[in-house]
Amino acid sequence: MSITLDSQVPVAAPVSAPVKGYWQAVFSRLRRDPVALIAGLILLIILAMAIFAPWLAPQSPYSTSMLNRLKPIGTEGFPLGTDELGRDMLSRLIYGARLSLLIGVMPVVNAFVIGSAIGIVAGFVGGRTNTVIMRIIDVFYAFPAVLLAIALAGALGAGLVNSLFSLTVVFIPPIARVAESVTTQVRNYDYIEAARASGARSLTIIRRHVLGNVLGPIFVYSTSLISVSMILASGLSFLGLGARPPMPEWGLMLNTMRDAIYVNPWVSVLPGVMIFSVSICCNMLSDGLRSAMDVK
């Protein structure tokens, strides 16, 4: 037989509305947020600095010179002064971006992967499994982040890899918690029920229906952790648990320069300024992302 769809024909949509995907909509919103844009731009510049350090840095970050110790900002040949061993501050800051960004970002990336996996499984399965997983997570949560990081790094011994590892452990619980709560929320939507009703297996449902809807919020939350991670990582280096001298790393530089603060305060705070700007830019970008992703 034939169907006459007389009543349905003119359901013409507003044809003018451009068909765009979710991420396109997010980025078009983000582009109209000046604060997030500027923050993103600064982060990009610092990232470029890290990548192109050998070409950008005027001198080697390791070459010491006893004659040029603790020069102030604006000295001939040392635009940002020198440190206590006479190394060029500008070069060390540029090279320092590599290590500092690495130990700031890597733990969050690792924790994002592991924490999301734990949280999504706990949230999707629910029930007793959820309770068990989340209570274990809570144990880690009970320690203050700084203390946990120091304790772990201390127990494992100083070193870059160990500090990366301990920071990862610190960030897994909060990310898992957010992932769990977002997933629990999504799990109760009708479209998940509809997918179950179509006979799909849990793994398929997670892959096709859950991930796309939960990764966004978890990602936004994780970006806000980068600033914390930067500061913690610098803190570990400052305490001698992370990067080791003579590596150029902002936290470590802040530590070694702290005696010079009375001699040459402006140069001494420069690594701190870098840490501060990266963290605040990360936070602003993540704020911007959050509101841009809140399409509906």
């Binding site: 939507y189 009708d190 029920e193 509809a194 997918a195 006979g199 796309g212 809807n213």
Partner: peptide
């Protein structure tokens, strides 16, 4: 699984029953 294929459901909330990230 076979029964679910032969029985399908339409929910009340038309928005919540579609995945917002899927075309």
């Amino acid at each position: 699984r076979e029964m679910r294929r032969q029985v399908q459901m339409v929910f009340q909330n038309s928005y919540a029953s579609l995945n917002p990230r899927m075309s």
